[in-house]
């Protein structure tokens, strides 16, 4: 059920409006006790409106107000030199580079595993259950350990984070590609057999084209997963840069506004990455002559 765009804009805007309103209310309510404390110590009595204004402009609030986060985000994204340590663009770039490295190798690994599983029966029977089991291991939980341990043998920087992203992103790709490579109908496979085509030819001319929609769907999941991997990989060990380290620093020094804007930077990054994969999928679809639905 795809409704026309216009019928979706109003509801989405309404919901976003409600969220922002609730956010403001929460900010006032959660910041009020601390502000009341401050006022009492300073012997200030303020009217309700003044009081509300103050709760929304604390330097280190429990809940920063939306406009504070927006201002901080704007300042740190557009007004700072991109090489500066305080620029969100810089931190996003650090996270993005390891996300992309991990995503690329994870996708490659996933495709290789899927090709192996589809063509070698022993692999299908023995590997598939373990691939599923591998995802019940909360790997993110050991992300810090991977980083620390690799640092102990002088592997630092991009590679440990990219490894975590790889581990998180290979799974959706492998599962999706196994489904995709097996998606050609029996009839088509039989047709290839009547052409006397080799396994190799069947693979390139039938299985691969049939699997592309599955590949892109799973790549969308994988790219989001590898971003999460990169961010969590930056949490421990006092990584010097990246969205994750920004979050951790914010939580140490209770710079809540910084934390929220780092979170928003991560979200924007995720949205951009997923959109890029989506556009890639549409381009490939058009090249292959899929009719837009």
């Amino acid at each position: 059920m795809t409704e026309p765009l216009s019928s979706r804009v109003l509801p989405v805007l309404t919901i976003i409006g409600v969220i922002i309103a609730v956010w403001y209310a929460a900010a006032i309510w959660m910041n009020a006790p601390f502000q009341r404390d401050l006022d009492r110590r300073a012997n200030v009595t303020s009217t309700t409106m003044e009081f509300i204004g103050k709760t929304l402009s604390q330097p280190k609030p429990v809940v920063p107000a939306p406009h504070q986060v927006a201002r901080n985000f704007f300042e740190n994204t557009f007004l700072r030199n991109v090489t500066s340590n305080r620029s969100l663009v810089y931190h996003s770039w650090v996270t993005l580079s390891s996300t992309l490295a991990g995503f690329a190798s994870g996708t490659l690994l996933g495709i290789l595993i899927a090709v192996g599983i589809v063509h070698v029966k022993a692999l299908d029977r023995s590997l598939m259950p373990w691939i599923i089991a591998s995802q019940t291991v909360p790997i993110l939980a050991i992300a810090p350990m991977v980083v620390v341990v690799l640092a102990a043998i002088n592997v630092t920087g991009l590679i440990p984070k990219a490894l975590i992203s790889t581990y998180l992103s290979f799974f959706p790709v492998a599962v999706g590609m196994v489904k995709g490579l097996r998606s050609p109908e029996l009839m088509h496979l039989d047709l290839m057999r009547t052409y006397n085509s080799s396994t190799w030819q069947t693979f390139w001319k039938l299985r691969v084209p049939a699997s592309l929609p599955f590949l892109f769907t799973s790549m969308k999941v994988a790219v989001a997963a590898s971003l999460v991997g990169a961010i969590v990989g930056e949490l421990p060990t006092g990584a010097a840069a990246g969205i994750g380290s920004k979050l951790l620093a914010g939580s140490y020094y209770s710079q809540t506004i910084d934390m929220w804007s780092a979170l928003i930077a991560g979200s924007v990054l995720a949205a951009i990455l997923v959109t890029i994969v989506g556009i890639g999928s549409r381009i490939v679809d058009r090249r292959m002559g899929v009719k837009p639905t």
Binding site: S7, P11, V228, L247, M259, S267
Partner: peptide, 27 residues
């Protein structure tokens, strides 16, 4: 109305690195 508004937001949210709210929740 709620479905049309929530679904795109929900789809977006499930792609976001929600794990990042952890420090905020601890606070």
């Amino acid at each position: 109305f709620l479905r049309r508004g929530l679904l795109p937001i929900g789809n977006l949210m499930s792609a976001l690195p929600i794990i990042g709210v952890a420090p905020i929740m601890v606070m």
